[in-house]
């Protein structure tokens, strides 16, 4: 049931921007989904079909762009892909890091008619 509330928010974002731009129809929704997000593509598609029914976004194609799990070391500044959630910097063995990508779920753009 995790994705239902997430897809409600996603559909609201899409409809808000569709309405703001006077869309008659949303043809495609481009989404960015981090590889370590707990959101799964299949349930998103399932709930979107249900929630977009009778809206301008009904039938829109969902396109997912997956982003790698990347961290930046706060000590030496190097960026690297995190494996198995081991955040240790491969360059300087630093452990103070910030996450660059991999956690996000974002509506990047919509294609409207």
């Amino acid at each position: 049931m995790h994705e239902l509330s997430v897809v409600e928010s996603m559909t609201a974002v899409v409809l808000k921007h569709a309405e703001r731009n006077g869309a008659k129809k949303v043809a495609k929704i481009n989404l960015v989904l981090g590889t370590v997000s707990s959101v799964m593509e299949e349930p998103v598609r399932f709930y979107f079909e249900m929630l977009s029914k009778d809206t301008v976004a009904e039938g829109a194609e969902l396109c997912f762009r997956r982003t790698p799990f990347v961290a930046r070391c706060k000590s030496c500044g190097s960026e690297y892909e995190v494996e198995d959630f081991d955040f240790t910097c491969p360059e300087c063995k630093g452990t103070e890091v910030e996450i660059v990508s991999g956690r996000e779920f974002q509506v990047e753009s919509i294609e409207i008619n």
Binding site: V6, S9, M10, A12, V13, V14, H17, A18, N21, A23, E104, F105, Q106, V107, E108, S109, I110, E111, I112, N113
Partner: peptide, 14 residues
């Protein structure tokens, strides 16, 4: 027409 959105889906909760 492509509309840039760049809105996080967890933003509303945050």
């Amino acid at each position: 027409m492509e509309i840039k959105v760049l809105e996080g889906i967890f933003d509303a909760n945050e």
